[in-house]
Design a protein around this nucleic acid. Sequence first.
DNA 1: GGTGTAACCAATGCAGTATTGGTTACAGCC
DNA 2: GGCTGTAACCAATACTGCATTGGTTACACC
Lengths: 227, 227
Amino acid sequence: MSSPEISTPSALESLRDFLADQKLALNARLPAERQLCSELGLSRGKLRKALALLEAEGQIWRHVGRGTFIGPRPVINLNDVEYLSEQSRPTEVMEARMAIEPQLAKLAAVHGTASNFAEMRRCQKRCHSAREWRVYEAWDNNFHQAIATATCNKLLISLFDTLNIVRRSTVWGQLRSTQLPPADHGSFAEHEAIYEAIVGRNPDLAADHMRSHLKSVRDRTFSAMEN
Amino acid sequence: MSSPEISTPSALESLRDFLADQKLALNARLPAERQLCSELGLSRGKLRKALALLEAEGQIWRHVGRGTFIGPRPVINLNDVEYLSEQSRPTEVMEARMAIEPQLAKLAAVHGTASNFAEMRRCQKRCHSAREWRVYEAWDNNFHQAIATATCNKLLISLFDTLNIVRRSTVWGQLRSTQLPPADHGSFAEHEAIYEAIVGRNPDLAADHMRSHLKSVRDRTFSAMEN
DNA sequence: GGTGTAACCAATGCAGTATTGGTTACAGCC
DNA sequence: GGCTGTAACCAATACTGCATTGGTTACACC
């Protein structure tokens, strides 16, 4: 039986020869499968087996609708926020917040500067003076952003930004309970506690307050969803 | 009456009234400028001035070809991992790991499945049998990746991936102390402790072990850098 | 100088079409 | 039965032409 053991390897060989001939640069796109078939005189099945081997070796990578390319598969776009938002359920987003934001508060208490603290204070005041839910929410968001900024860690800030975008674009399955100005919103006291702990350079306390703040946010959100 | 001090504010007022009437949701798109002009009976110039004020307040954001939207301008996609890597110093990367990975271990102990645990075990074995530093490092990396995967939280996994890419592309300012096979590498016991805590469904213990593991990694790394 | 109007610009969205890798069904052939 | 080649189909993606949108400029008119 000379056919399978030899014919498939020969397909691989002719494909390798073709690639060597063309001297294709990194990331270059090679002809579509159907075209390569006729050029190399191979059936599509054989060609695809050869291509699969090359792909397994990391020599090429393929994608439906795009083509076959030279080189290692590029890193997937991790920050494809839309995709992430579709993939993330509200409980997951909340879980991620509770995992990360307390740590940010902790580090903010360590590395935060006076101007960081001033920005946090400014956001708090705007929260108080907000008369519409939307405005309140904007400054609440800025408050949490200010805490992330206070970590003085660009990587963590970037991770928080991604988390934040996903959170804001997540469909929470509810309308805000109207245009309610959040007059006696419980978050005021919680924000204050977080702020005090951070400014007081008390990392663990800051993390604790952030954790309980997020817990109450979670409870309010999900209980509102069930109503 | 028709002086600029009055006419422009009135444009702003009628625009605010319009927004209140429509009760537009967050991220909703409001009508195109030309349409709003006729609806509100304003010239485009006046309308644009009013819109510019709202935009300055952070109430709306606009983009050519897309439209005008309610809410804060979404943050640009910072998928530029290379940029992040340049901006992040080794201490920052390490700090981010110590902030996030213990939380991942904690959640892995909560949500992890049997197949997650099997994968973690597989990575551990490969770490043991590795004879080159590079291979060891690859499976060590996979071990931490498996923990992130075990959180069953796509958002957290994605954040970890970003962190991981930055970490791996960070210049640590040192060469590995040669090709040393890490025969009695201290991380073995630490990995084992983390694994046991996760499989034993002990979230806090898992976080603790991860924290001390990262501490020892940090100490080894930075002491090596000083030598 | 300020205002309103219209025209233009580049960026974007959108819908329809073509292309691409991946898969399946089937006839033909040892 | 097992393998092969062919064709058809599928979902994802690129491409293309057109409509729309915010931003800008020019100009006539007070």
